[in-house]
C-alpha cells in the first residue's frame, strides 16, 4: 500500500511540476516548455515503486527504522551536521550503498532572515555537507543530487525562532530512477 502511495505522490508532484511550464489562458503569457518534464516525470512515476523493491520501501516507511527520518536541522548560519545526526546519515548511506538504483535529492533550506540569494548559497552549503557525509559512508555521488531552496520553501510559517529552527534543515527526498 505504501508503495502505491509514494507512487501517487510522485505522480502528483510530477503533474504539478508539469503545470509550471505549460499551458496558458487568455490575457496571459503562454509559457514555452523547453524541456521534457512531462514525459520524464511519467517515467519517474511508473518506475518508482518497482525500483525500490519491497524491502527497501518498507524500510523507508517503517516508523521504527531510522530511514523514516529524513530531515536534519542546523544552527543559525551554520552548515555543521550535529553529532546526533551522524547515525541517521550512516543508516541512509548504508541504504543507498545497498540499493545502487535508488536516487536521493539532498535539499538544503534556511530560515527567512537575511537576503534570499545568500540563503540559497547557505542552503546549498548545508546540503553539500550532508552529501559529503553520505558519500564518505558509502553512497555513490551518482545517486545524489543537491538542490538548495534557501528560504523559499519553509517547513513552518512563523516569524520567530520556533519556526526558524524547523526551517534550517536538509531534507533527503528519495526518488525513483
Amino acid at each position: 500500500m505504501n508503495t502505491v502511495k509514494l507512487g501517487l505522490a510522485l505522480m502528483f508532484a510530477g503533474v504539478l511540476a508539469g503545470c509550471s511550464t505549460t499551458g496558458s489562458k487568455p490575457g496571459e503569457v503562454a509559457v514555452e516548455d523547453r524541456g521534457t518534464t512531462a514525459g520524464a516525470t511519467e517515467e519517474v512515476t511508473t518506475r518508482a515503486a518497482g525500483d525500490y523493491g519491497e524491502l527497501g520501501m518498507q524500510a523507508l516507511n517503517d516508523p521504527s527504522s531510522p530511514l523514516s527520518h529524513r530531515v536534519i536541522y542546523f544552527a543559525f548560519d551554520s552548515s555543521e551536521v550535529a553529532e546526533q545526526d551522524r547515525d541517521l546519515l550512516a543508516a541512509h548511506a548504508a541504504f543507498l550503498a545497498a540499493n545502487p538504483d535508488v536516487k536521493v535529492s539532498v535539499e538544503g533550506h534556511t530560515d527567512e532572515r537575511g537576503s534570499r540569494e545568500y540563503n540559497i548559497a547557505l542552503g546549498e552549503r548545508r546540503a553539500q555537507a550532508v552529501k559529503r557525509i553520505l558519500e564518505f559512508q558509502g553512497a555513490s555521488p551518482a545517486q545524489m543530487t543537491v538542490v538548495s531552496y534557501g528560504e523559499e520553501k519553509p517547513a513552518a510559517e512563523g516569524h520567530d525562532e520556533s519556526a526558524w529552527s524547523l526551517n534550517r534543515r536538509v531534507e533527503l527526498v528519495y526518488v525513483g530512477r
Partner: peptide, 19 residues
C-alpha cells in the same frame, strides 16, 4: 525552480516568450 532545480530564464515582458 520548475523541474525541481534552479535555472535562469530570460523572458520578454511584452510577448511572454522566454528562454
Amino acid at each position: 525552480f520548475e523541474k525541481r532545480r534552479a535555472s535562469i530564464f530570460v523572458q520578454d515582458v511584452g510577448s511572454g516568450k522566454r528562454e
